[in-house]
């Protein structure tokens, strides 16, 4: 449904995104995860044809972003970081206007309006001025705006930012309910949010994609082991075996190296520093230690910068769940 290949965008000397490649299948939810300023919004703006890329290519719903922007614009719904609403209009007036500029007419406007109001539970505020609505409701109006023409692709830029925990849960449920019918890309800088909502996560940092994978495999990859890489002068068949004998080591992975030399990555238990034992083993065996360094995955760096906890939401979802449970008991 969405194919992005080698997309780059520069603002003068600043590289906003650099060689970004990923794809999303029909009906999937993809989360863009990255700290603030990582290039999430820029990527989304390029995909919505709001701004052109410096290089690379992308297709959305089968259309190229450079060649047929109009066709893409007809098929996407976009919720920017700040909901693009006219504060002086009522919800219905605004949504009717959006329906018209998205190309709906006649009965299409009515059905689109009704279903958007219903999906975003806006029925009871439909006659109110948007300027008088709270942040959460404005966000929902923004979402309704993106949905009104029933687009194939939904692009949501930080859809839950600035909402209270209860609203966050509601919006997430809504987004999950929309998958299948729509292909969705959303961005977030909150790790649990990506887990909660999406099937596929793209982690982006300083404009580059650090990892593309399902959430379970990513976290497994990140915090399972400590890694140390080392290089020795003389490669011997016994090296992996002897190193595996060090306590805490569970894997030795040979790497490519110059002729005769040996290079390995050693994985060990989390929280155990094996460097001292490792160097002793190498020296006593006389392999000739050339280099040794702990591997800090850039993925980990990114994860460290991400908000990895959201206490409020967890608490709220817990209280919501327990509330429901008590109701059920009664």
């Amino acid at each position: 449904m969405i194919e992005v290949s080698h997309l780059s965008k520069r603002y003068g000397d600043i590289v906003a995104i650099d060689d970004v490649t990923f794809s999303v299948d029909r009906g999937q939810i993809l989360a863009f995860l990255g700290p603030n300023g990582a290039g999430k919004t820029t990527t989304m703006r390029i995909l919505t044809c709001f701004m052109p890329a410096t290089s690379g290519s992308a297709t959305v719903a089968g259309y190229d972003i450079f060649e047929s922007p109009m066709e893409i614009k007809r098929r996407i719904g976009y919720l920017p970081e700040n909901p693009p609403v006219y504060l002086e209009m009522t919800v219905v007036e605004y949504l009717r206007f959006v329906a018209k500029i998205k190309g709906l007419s006649g009965r299409g406007i009515k059905t689109g309006l009704d279903s958007a109001l219903e999906k975003c539970t806006l029925g009871h505020v439909s006659g109110r001025l948007i300027g008088n609505l709270s942040r959460g409701y404005r966000q929902r109006v923004g979402l309704a705006q993106a949905l009104i023409h029933n687009p194939d692709v939904l692009i949501l830029d930080e859809p839950t930012v600035g909402l209270d925990p209860k609203q966050i849960i509601e919006i997430r449920e809504l987004i999950k309910a929309l998958a299948g019918e729509h292909t969705i890309i959303l961005s977030t800088h909150i790790l649990p949010e990506a887990t909660a909502v999406s099937q596929k996560v793209v982690i982006i940092n300083r404009g580059k994609i650090v990892a593309v994978d399902s959430q379970e495999r990513l976290s497994a990859q990140v915090r399972k082991s400590e890694k140390v890489s080392f290089r020795v002068r003389r490669k011997e068949a016994l090296v992996p075996q002897k190193i595996l004998a060090i306590s805490g080591v569970h894997q030795v992975i040979p790497q490519e190296a110059d002729k005769g030399e040996g290079a390995y990555i050693v994985e060990s238990d989390v929280g155990r520093d094996i460097r001292e034992d490792l160097s002793r083993t190498i020296v006593t065996n006389g392999w000739g230690l050339l280099e040794m360094k702990p591997l800090v995955l850039s993925l980990e760096e990114v994860f460290l910068e991400l908000t990895t906890q959201e206490k409020d939401v967890e608490a709220a979802s817990f209280s919501a769940a327990s509330h429901q449970a008590t109701e059920e008991n009664q």
């Binding site: 709001f50 614009k73 007809r74 976009y78 920017p80 693009p84 006219y86 959006v98 500029i101």
Partner: peptide
């Protein structure tokens, strides 16, 4: 008001 993003991502010339 960020509404230009709405206009520019709608099928309008």
């Amino acid at each position: 008001g960020h509404t230009s993003e709405l206009l520019m991502t709608s099928p309008l010339s």
